[in-house]
Simulated assay, not measured.
Amino acid sequence: MIASNRFNNAVNKLYTAFHNNTLNPEDCTQCAVGNILDNNDSWKHMTDIHGSVRLNYIGLVHQNLGRRFNGYTPLELLRIEAAFLKGCGYRLGKYFCHKPDNHKDKSILFNGLSEVVSTLCQLDNMKDVMDCSTIFKFERLDSIREMV
Score class of each variant (00 low, 15 high):
I144H: 03
N21E: 13
V148D: 13
T119A: 09
L14V: 12
M1S: 08
N21Q: 11
L37F: 05
K127C: 01
F138D: 08
F18M: 05
K94V: 14
S107D: 12
V117S: 06
F18W: 00
N125C: 06
I135R: 04
K137Q: 11
Q30W: 07
F7M: 06
N102V: 07
Y72R: 05
I108F: 08
N20E: 13
N35Q: 15
N111D: 12
I49T: 15
R145A: 11
L14P: 08
D27R: 11
G66K: 01
N35R: 13
N111Q: 13
L60E: 09
T16M: 12
I108V: 12
H98S: 09
E81G: 09
V11M: 06
L78N: 02
L23H: 06
C97K: 14
F69L: 15
D105G: 02
E139G: 02
I2V: 05
N9P: 02
L55I: 00
G71I: 07
I58F: 10
E115Y: 12
C97V: 12
F84Q: 05
K13R: 15
N102F: 01
H50L: 12
I2K: 12
K94R: 11
G89Y: 02
G66H: 03
Q63I: 01
M147T: 06
R91C: 06
V61N: 01
D48G: 15
P74I: 01
A3E: 12
H103T: 10
K104P: 06
S143G: 00
N5P: 02
Q63N: 02
G87I: 10
N125D: 13
F110K: 08
L92I: 15
N21R: 14
Q63V: 02
F18V: 00
I49D: 13
C132R: 11
E76T: 00
A32G: 13
L55N: 00
K94L: 15
L14C: 07
G89R: 04
F69M: 09
K86L: 14
C28Q: 13
D131A: 03
L141R: 06
K104I: 08
M126N: 05
Q30I: 04
L120Q: 00
R140W: 07
M147A: 14
C28K: 11
I135D: 01
E139W: 10
C28A: 14
M130S: 08
L37M: 12
